[in-house]
Design a protein around this nucleic acid. Structure first.
Lengths: 179, 179
DNA sequence: GAATAATGTTGAAGTCGGTAATATTGCAGT
DNA sequence: ACTGCAATATTACCGACTTCAACATTATTC
């Protein structure tokens, strides 16, 4: 629960941040040519982990979670959807969509309604309460975003987006190659 | 379970990747000056989510999980530790450390041993089996890393590390400010 | 010596992820 | 029309992680 105080992050000769202890650890080890990739992915792991923690803590103050927020965002962007489409859009199993919609419906943020054409499917749509909750969250998010990207210049913000999306593309390719 | 095919990632005028649908959505909305930060954090969110999925799928093929892997890494880097120190280093509650060490000890990867000086504390250390498991994982990790960073040049790899660590610093500051 | 704090463990509960089985419904072939 | 198959959503069950509250044991402090 205590802050992670043992991460010696410092600037290297190129004006870029690095983890001093991790780099020393790698230099003392075997495969030298892979050091930059090891450092980059360790940093990505750390950032991803911390990002998830802060997002979760931030969302739970609105009685939300990452999965439920994903559902709300998707419903807001796309409009009412069938549960199956939601599952494939969010890349989770149908079982989990049932649970997430159960929870959201219990909280009054989402409504289920049967489909007129195909009586197997059930559609989910935002309720006015859900839209209001989403609007409140989006209002606070502007401030949270600026805090998280404090000290980033325009170039760095664009590069962060670019590199993240490049990673996403690679991970998609790997997933398809493995299937 | 299906691949997330509705993410229209393309190159913009600056040769950087962006999500076309998301940008159009933002352009049609209100606060124009915050578009770059919104895009960057949406990309980070996506990358973080996919990274976690990929890591989990990869680790479970070694009968590991993110939390257990964190314990093993930490024990390997720092040597035998008390459970309390492990909890604060990994930023989880003592209850979770008990569970993680229970699981790892059941699998024979970690051993508990009482502390000689303070009989309240118990230390955890890697067993030879645990070190072997870790070595096997590290061997495969070299290949997985190169796949995930395929197409990244040296500059991009360094920038990815830099930006991730900068994000980590910001999130640490925000956490301390909130406490 | 007694009160207090620290350390680790336990149990209960909740969230989120997966698989497998099932009922219902649509669809295609005969 | 009937049969067989696929799709959809739900249920039940399990596993991992998290928190909270309570507890026993041990140090520390007054």
């Amino acid at each position: 629960m205590e802050p992670n105080c043992e991460s010696p992050i410092a600037l290297d000769d190129n004006g870029r941040l690095y983890n001093r202890r991790f780099r020393e650890h790698l230099l003392a080890s075997a495969d030298q040519p892979n050091i930059p990739t090891a450092e980059a992915l360790a940093a990505l792991r750390l950032a991803s982990h911390n990002f998830r923690i802060t997002m979760d803590r931030w969302l739970e103050r609105h009685q939300l979670s990452e999965g439920r927020m994903g559902v709300l965002w998707r419903l807001r962007g796309t409009g009412p959807m069938t549960l199956g489409d939601l599952a494939s859009a969010l890349d989770v199993s149908p079982r989990n969509i049932t649970g997430l919609i159960d929870h959201l419906e219990r909280d009054g943020l989402v409504e289920r309604s049967p489909d007129a054409d195909d009586r197997r499917v059930t559609r989910a749509r935002l309720t006015p309460v859900g839209e209001a909750r989403l609007a409140a969250v989006r209002g606070e998010m502007v401030e949270a975003r600026s805090h998280m990207l404090a000290g980033f210049n325009d170039e760095e913000i664009d590069l962060l987006r670019h590199l993240c999306l490049k990673l996403v593309q690679n991970m998609h390719m790997e997933k398809e190659a493995r299937s």
